[in-house]
Every structure is written in C-alpha cells, then in structure tokens.
C-alpha cells in the first residue's frame, strides 16, 4: 500500500496586487513632489488672498526676498537687517547684468510674513528700486473662499 507523504504544503502568495498598489503610490508621490518649492521657509507665514494668481510660466531672473515678522530678511540662509540687504541685492544685480539681462526685467519676489511691518516691506522695495529693479511680485497664499 502506497501512503502519500503529508509534508508541509508551500503556499505561494500572489504578490502582484501589492506590487501594483506600491507602484501606484510611488507614482503618486513622484508627481506631487515639488523640488522647486525649496525656497519656501516655514518661519514665514504668508498672508492669504483669493486673488493671488499662481505664477504663469517661468519668471525671468527671479530674486526672492523673504521678510520675517521681526523685520529681518532671510536671504541665502542668513538673516540680514533690512537696511543691510543692499549689498546682497547689488551682487544679484551684478550677476544679472553679467548674464546679459536687464535688471528692469528681473522680478523681485517679496515673500513677507503677514505680521511684518508694511514699512519694512516698502523699504526692501525701495532698495530694489534704487538698484534698478522695477518688477515686483508680492506673494501670498492662494486660498479660494
């Protein structure tokens, strides 16, 4: 009489659905990951507006000025007093001129905290104007009502 061996049966799980879902997740994260937002800083709480237009196309020669609530300008990882930002802006201007671009066409993006003094923002704009910059983009969070 032949007896069948009752050894342990190998159960093979079908991994295909799990791999499918995992790839879907990776695709999702790859699409929503935006490295261009690296300039944003958590220390600055932008005011919100329902009419702030998302930038269309590529901004020519953008210079970002981040103004903190205490009045300092966050620039290249350092906090610089408003009245001393001229030197850094002058260097930016020199770079723009050296690359055959016109400072008048460059855009200064002002990312100012909602609690910052309006006068400090105006002072930054004034310093930019004295260096020949004319285009400004006052940045706000877009919040439709």
């Amino acid at each position: 009489m032949i007896r069948r061996s009752n050894g342990p049966a190998i159960v093979e799980n079908d991994m295909t659905p799990m791999i499918d879902v995992t790839f879907q997740l990776i695709t999702f994260f790859m699409f929503v990951l935006n490295f261009s937002e690296a300039e944003q800083d958590e220390r600055i709480q932008l005011p919100s507006s329902q009419l702030a237009k998302p930038a269309e196309g590529v901004v020519e020669a953008p210079i970002t000025m981040q103004l903190m609530a205490n009045g300092g300008v966050l620039y290249a990882g350092e906090i610089i007093p408003v009245d001393e930002i001229g030197g850094s802006l002058q260097r930016e201007r020199d770079i723009i001129v050296a690359s055959d671009k016109d400072p008048k066409r460059a855009t200064v993006i002002v990312r100012a905290d909602g609690r910052a003094n309006a006068g400090d923002v105006q002072r930054v704009i004034q310093i930019c104007q004295e260096l020949g910059f004319q285009q400004f983009a006052l940045r706000a969070l877009y919040k439709p009502d």
Binding site: T22, L25, I26, F29, M30, V32, L33, N34, E37, Q40, L46, S49, L51, A52, K53, P54, A55, K104, I109, I125, Q129, E130, G132, Q134, Q135, F136, A137, L138, R139, A140, L141, Y142, K143
Partner: peptide
C-alpha cells in the same frame, strides 16, 4: 525603499500666488 523616501520627503504646501506690481523709482 523608494516609497519610504517619497513619504518622508512629502510635505503638503499650500499653493502660492503673486500680485504683480510694476514700480519704477
């Protein structure tokens, strides 16, 4: 590994917009 990387680097950022102002000196 890839999924963990993307999950850790993912942060939700509210969309930002601009008010374009032209102000010559």
């Amino acid at each position: 590994q890839l999924m963990i990387f993307f999950m850790l680097t993912f942060n939700i950022i509210a969309p930002e917009g601009d008010f374009d102002v032209r102000m010559p000196l």
